Amino acid sequence: MLTGTTKNLAVIGWPIAHSLSPVLQNAAIEKAGLDYVYTALPVKPEDLPAAVQGLKALQFRGWNVTIPHKTAIMPLLDAIDEDARIIGAVNTVVNDEGCLTGYNTDVTGFIEALLAAGFAPQDKTAVLLGAGGAARAVVWGLIKAGVTAIHIGVRSPKKVQPLVDEFSTYGTLTVSHWEQADFAAKLAAADLLVNTTPLGMFPQTNAMPPVDWSNVKADAFVYDIIYTPAETRLLREARLHGHPTLNGEDMLVGQGAAAFSKWTGVQPDIECMKVKLREALAT
């Protein structure tokens, strides 16, 4: 029951109706027995400054941030966590009595899902397919986890070179066209293959990045951060070629769980969140 003491949480974006965050967060709130409520709020880009001030004035305890506000919100906050600063994007805001701090929990969600699946990135080599929205969080997460090198395969290497130059301060990165011979050699030596492109996402489920499985290391772990469908074409082909696989469900739940902990100080029931996510995806 909502009362005068109920604490408010939200996710802001434009559009926002598709967001599954309310499903995840309200499941965790109910399971933990907390007096919180989480809602989705549509915020147009031009209204972002006013929205941030409004959420602060209304004493929202915190909120998630999704497209297109993840970078635009940063100058509107009082402090930025190191992960969010390096990645250049905020997906979680915590309001401590009017002091707004921005975090990026995608890093935590990505790495913790990988570790839980039995793959330890330390001293391994990784290949990324694509360098879109979540790629910066993936790159930073892998660097923090101790990979020896990250090789990125894309359609337009020149567009991605600035990202490579930026993160080369922290680790070894290269970029290649994903259909060139030099990329095939990188793929053959990689312990981990991660898809950060939207290729294969519903409804275009027959799509996938160009991967020649004869060039993929026999025991390479294949991680597709897409979660609709649960098994993309990339993951299906990887499984049929004998590779261990992981989809993006655990990353989505993990980043939400990390945000939940920052707002409430409580560790949420991860399994409960996963069940509710799968129920929502099924409908």
Rank of each mutant, 00 (worst) to 15 (best):
237 E>T: 10
61 R>Y: 01
37 V>Q: 13
205 T>S: 01
44 K>P: 04
189 A>D: 13
83 D>M: 09
37 V>I: 09
21 S>Q: 10
108 T>L: 11
109 G>M: 13
247 N>E: 04
77 L>Q: 03
254 G>L: 12
10 A>N: 10
47 D>V: 02
215 N>I: 00
266 V>R: 14
252 L>H: 07
191 D>T: 07
116 A>I: 00
130 G>I: 05
71 T>A: 14
69 H>F: 02
241 H>L: 00
223 Y>N: 07
212 D>H: 13
20 L>S: 09
118 G>R: 08
88 G>H: 01
280 A>N: 07
262 K>I: 10
216 V>K: 04
161 Q>S: 05
152 I>Y: 04
180 Q>E: 14
84 A>V: 12
183 F>P: 06
85 R>D: 14
221 F>M: 06
30 E>D: 15
15 P>K: 04
147 V>P: 11
33 G>M: 03
243 H>C: 08
249 E>S: 14
84 A>D: 13
177 H>W: 07
264 T>D: 09
131 A>N: 10
40 A>G: 14
111 I>C: 04
242 G>A: 03
132 G>Q: 02
135 A>T: 02
95 N>P: 09
94 V>Q: 13
271 E>V: 11
8 N>R: 14
128 L>T: 02
162 P>I: 07
141 G>T: 02
110 F>P: 09
71 T>R: 13
46 E>C: 02
216 V>T: 08
114 L>R: 08
273 M>K: 09
72 A>Y: 05
268 P>H: 06
2 L>C: 06
136 R>G: 07
27 A>E: 11
44 K>F: 03
86 I>Q: 03
75 P>Q: 07
85 R>C: 01
35 D>Q: 12
2 L>I: 15
190 A>L: 08
13 G>F: 08
262 K>E: 11
7 K>D: 06
189 A>I: 07
32 A>V: 06
173 L>H: 11
85 R>P: 02
149 A>G: 11
222 V>W: 09
158 K>L: 15
94 V>P: 10
215 N>Q: 15
19 S>L: 04
1 M>S: 15
145 A>L: 06
11 V>M: 08
49 P>R: 12
15 P>G: 07
105 T>K: 06
141 G>F: 04
130 G>W: 00
233 R>F: 06
208 M>R: 15
11 V>K: 03
52 V>C: 06
150 I>N: 12
75 P>E: 08
198 P>C: 08
41 L>W: 14
258 A>V: 06
